[in-house]
Design a protein around this nucleic acid. Structure first.
Lengths: 202, 202
DNA sequence: TAGATTGTTAATCGATTAACAATC
DNA sequence: TAGATTGTTAATCGATTAACAATC
């Protein structure tokens, strides 16, 4: 158990983005700069990196390339992660084309759908496959992260099938509360919830 | 200043969902049930509702319809909120059709795009308009919440225009860090960040 | 040496939870 | 009255921040 706090993990992508976007010339970066990028306090950054066991140099800062590698390793993207998208409708198609995914370590390897008319299509170079092929593809370790972009009513049955095939990382865009067994990680992106929280502020 | 904590505000949509989905017959609900729905502790729920100034009845529970109304009011959805979507590509089209938006208090009133070929189309009953019409529509108070679903490079200029037209609530799906003046609320949904956080767990 | 910046301690802040008297 | 459940206090937990000695 590495045991980073959830709050720390949630900040790592911000740090990483800055490090990725850094000018070629820079090889050092300060906690102050990282803090500005993530919108947090510099002491907070230093504590995060210290929790990561990453040492800087007093008076100088942190070695940017090494820090980038360290964060990528911690996030599990030191190797490429293979993502499968379920649902080849507008949402799935949009997600398949999301800019910068590849640069951030993720490869979309398949889109699954159940509509015969769509199967066999290509969406931005990604083949649309029959959902029935999913278990066999999992067997071959074709993907490790599943993005759910199907209609609300189809989400839970799909997720049951995914979990049955050993998928443990799920990002859900369907407006449905998912129930999963322990050990399966689900992150939920819900448009209504986002709008309601926004709405509170104005 | 009402002054609910961010943590409390983030839980209100979960409570509201349960209350909305409640069987017709039920008119009372316990902190225990609300807690189960939101995945939190019952004491936490009681504290949240107490912060809201909402009183229950000892030995009985909370009046479900009144609580639903109270939360809706707190979230600013006691009246309907009008949402405009910017970008009529796959993502904008998918968001316009998101199930349950209307039930949750939101009306998608317009889709804006800059491509002449798309302008004049209808997407699920919503007209696609020229972005150039946005300032005039704002003047008429046609919408109050903006969803950004344009390519990354177009996001910041669009947001500048929105802010210039007085928009203060923005939900951004473009993979771009937005800079906005104080008083403007932005919520960011970023696919890479979600995948990275998931990736950490497996 | 002077200036910059880390690493860490201690203080603070904020949020969660257990516990239980109040009371329906 | 007995059972259920709230409302709130006090304890706990966890995360943020100020501050500063260490040190490049």
């Amino acid at each position: 158990m590495t045991g980073l706090s959830n709050a720390t993990v949630a900040r790592l992508p911000s740090y990483l983005r800055l490090l990725d976007d850094l000018e070629g010339g820079r090889d050092t970066i300060s906690s102050e700069e990282l803090a500005a990028a993530a919108g947090v306090n510099a002491a907070n950054v230093r504590r995060d990196l210290s929790d990561l066991g990453f040492q800087g140099t007093r008076g100088v800062g942190y070695a940017a390339p090494a820090l980038r590698d360290r964060i990528r390793r911690e996030l599990g993207i030191d190797r490429r992660r293979r993502v499968a998208i379920f649902g080849a409708g507008n949402l799935g198609t949009a997600l398949a084309g999301y800019a910068g995914l590849s640069k951030r370590g993720f490869d979309v390897v398949a889109l699954y759908d159940v509509h015969p008319a769509r199967i066999g299509d290509q969406v931005r170079g990604v083949p649309v496959q029959d959902l029935a092929e999913m278990p066999a593809d999992r067997e071959k370790d074709k993907f490790d992260i599943a993005i759910v972009a199907v209609p609300a009513g189809a989400a839970q049955p799909l997720v049951n099938a995914l979990v049955g095939s050993g998928v443990r990382l799920i990002l859900n865009f369907a407006p449905a509360r998912l129930s999963v067994p322990p050990g399966v990680h689900v992150r939920q992106v819900d448009l209504s919830t986002e709008l309601q929280i926004l709405s509170y502020h104005g």
